[in-house]
Amino acid sequence: MTSSFEELLRIGAEADVSGWDFSWLDGRATEERPPWGYARRLGERLEGASASLDIQTGGGEVLAQASRLPTLAVATESWPPNIARATALLHPRGIAVVADPDEPPLPFADGAFDLVTSRHPATIHWGEIARVLRPGGTYFAQHVGPASAFELIEFFLGPLPEQRLGRDPGVEAEQARAAGLEVVDLRTARLRIEIFDVAAVVYLLRKVIWWVPGFTVDAHRERLRDLHERIRSDGPFVAHSSRHLIEARKPSRSVSEDDVENRPASPTPA
């Protein structure tokens, strides 16, 4: 039996939205996956690292998939429910979870890590990433790209032409270079999303709170009803996510710098 509009609202409103695992949406929404396999490639890089930092780890779900970890592995997170979930998931693996407000500075020393990672960071502070990387270290991440899920966001907020320009991968690459990093890989993908009922919409807007700021079921009931009727008459609501894979490296010290540091002092004139 098909659930009523009110029942779907209740289901979406009561769902647990802590952590960064979207498996609750199974059967209610689908999203095409990027072709590069971020979690697998993250695991490969972690195997070769000695000290790693995962920024804005969410509930730690992606990091926890790694089969092998560096001797020192740290993750940061700002949202209290996610901090609790990440701690429970990652501490048994020997990964320290640090509460951090996602604003500079990162609470770590210069050059503390040879690998810094992040999956879908809400904010990206390139200067801090460069600072905590060792010379020769790597930043490896999957970012949300421009106008991601904007078909759904603009359904509630109306046209957002300026916001559509944000999160441009080319701009982010230039920001990384300006912070002193070398961009060695940049790949983009536009991926299809299908949403099958309004419960999934309520869940998503409660979880990804920056999509529709201040979202509540009561405040947006009529627009939710419009979307419910549209899905009933036309089938799944289609949107598109945008993702890019970025890998940037902090240059090693040049030979000339090493030569200057190690050059014997000139004799003092008599």
Rank of each mutant, 00 (worst) to 15 (best):
P161C: 12
I95C: 10
R192Y: 04
G43T: 11
E61P: 03
G12T: 11
R28T: 09
P159I: 09
V132P: 01
H143T: 04
T30Y: 03
A270M: 05
D26Y: 05
A51D: 02
G127T: 03
G19K: 07
L227K: 05
T188L: 00
A64Q: 06
L224T: 02
A265M: 14
L42S: 04
G235A: 13
V202M: 10
E103I: 09
S52I: 00
S52Y: 06
S50M: 05
A75Q: 08
H240S: 09
R190C: 06
H125M: 09
Q163P: 00
P81H: 09
W210D: 07
A147D: 02
L181T: 00
P107T: 13
G158I: 07
A179L: 11
T268V: 15
R119P: 01
A179M: 08
H125K: 01
A49L: 08
R249I: 14
R85M: 12
I95A: 03
A200Q: 07
I55P: 00
P92A: 11
F215A: 07
R10H: 14
P80L: 06
A199E: 06
S3M: 14
R41G: 13
V62S: 01
D54L: 05
T268S: 12
A270S: 15
A239F: 02
G127H: 01
S252F: 07
E257T: 11
P92V: 03
A64F: 08
V202G: 01
R68E: 14
R28M: 13
L157I: 04
N262Y: 11
G136K: 07
V198F: 12
D185P: 01
S4P: 02
T87R: 11
A112S: 15
E162C: 05
S50A: 07
D185I: 07
S50E: 15
H120C: 00
R249G: 11
S233D: 12
A176S: 05
I83G: 00
T123M: 11
P161L: 09
P70T: 06
E7P: 01
D16T: 13
D114R: 02
D16S: 12
I124E: 00
W24F: 15
E222Q: 06
L42T: 10
E182W: 14
A66T: 05
L227F: 02
Q56A: 15
E257P: 09
E261D: 14
V144R: 08
T57M: 09
I124D: 03
I129S: 02
R119Q: 12
A99R: 05
R164L: 04
V212K: 05
L224E: 02
G19W: 02
V260R: 03
R40L: 14
G136W: 09
R221G: 11
V208Q: 01
D168C: 05
E77I: 04
R131C: 07
